[in-house]
Amino acid sequence: MTVKPEWLRVKAPQWQRVGSVKEILRDLGLNTVCEEASCPNIGECFNAGTATFLIMGPACTRACPYCDIDFEKKPKALDPLEPLNLAEAVRRLNLNHVVITSVNRDDLSDGGASQFVRCIAEIRKFSLKTTIEVLIPDLCGNWDALATILSAKPEVLNHNTETIPRLYRQVRPQGDYGRSLELLQRCKQLTPEIYTKSGLMVGLGETDAEVRQVMTELRQVDCDILTLGQYLQPSPKHLGVQDFIHPTQFDAWRKFGESIGFLQVVSSPLTRSSYHAEQVRDLMDKYPR
């Protein structure tokens, strides 16, 4: 794999705090995308006592060649205790903001929407002050399933477009760019009070103009929040990095995003979908709904 530039080097985490978070997760039998997807910010987030919970996993029904989540294992039946255990983890970690994501569960008729709802409901029983963000798959375009998730009233609904349309067949072969945009648009139409969010990874061969076009189209469906980060190859069997994007380019995209109306743009080489996600609470204070 290509040698990473200086700006992609991550400080070594303080393992005592990381270990305590992992202990809670293991005790409750929970998965995090931080671990399953080999996130480079795991040390920083775990040290801060935060995590992005991965429900209905860790086995995924899709085989996206950029993603480190396992697709070779057969997905298991939903765990009826998962929502309760997730709520207990939020309580123990004393989280102000929690992110719940999932693997793709195309084997389920509702794509797992009902499990998202159960998790939200359990968290609200024990942690009334915790704001909730759900990072959801495209649900195969099942808009009834989307409505089910929205009925639970998460504060933020996140769905990543991931890459530019030209690279979808290569990067996200079982996804559809238009479907992802439609999901975000429908969310805003059904529940305009919910903040919508999306994310892009760069370094796969896209051009600056193509990135800006996706940003513009996300604003056209009234997406509120955007994250932009560098794609990093998890292993030799995954898609290779085509370019390491310099931090100045990320800053330029941030400024462009703010100029076209995003309420918040988090853009840096190490940014991931849930990186500093708790900052959305400041956004809610500034732009209340």
Rank of each mutant, 00 (worst) to 15 (best):
Q230E: 04
P173V: 06
Y66M: 10
K76N: 13
A48S: 09
T148K: 12
C140D: 11
S259I: 11
C67V: 00
E122H: 03
W253F: 13
L204K: 04
T196M: 06
L270G: 00
V265L: 08
G178M: 05
Y168M: 04
I55F: 05
N94R: 15
A59T: 01
D79P: 02
L84Q: 13
V214D: 04
P192A: 12
D224F: 10
C140N: 15
P234W: 05
R9N: 07
M1R: 06
Q14R: 14
S151K: 08
I164K: 00
N41K: 05
P75F: 02
L157D: 07
N47A: 10
K73T: 08
A113L: 05
D107I: 01
A87K: 01
F116I: 03
A145W: 03
T161R: 12
P5T: 07
E210K: 04
P269Q: 03
P154D: 12
Y287E: 10
T131I: 12
Y287F: 15
E217H: 13
S20Y: 05
W7P: 04
V10D: 05
R281H: 02
V280D: 07
L167F: 12
K125Y: 12
Q174G: 00
L270T: 02
T52Q: 07
K197C: 06
S38P: 00
M56N: 10
V90G: 15
F46H: 03
S198F: 09
P236E: 14
T191W: 00
V134I: 13
Q16L: 12
L183I: 07
K188W: 12
S198I: 09
G203V: 05
N47L: 09
I24R: 08
P173T: 07
P75A: 03
S198L: 13
K188Y: 08
D110I: 06
C39S: 00
E72C: 11
G199V: 07
A48Q: 15
L54N: 08
R124C: 09
S259T: 02
I194E: 01
P13W: 15
N104H: 10
W143K: 13
L204H: 12
I69R: 08
V103A: 07
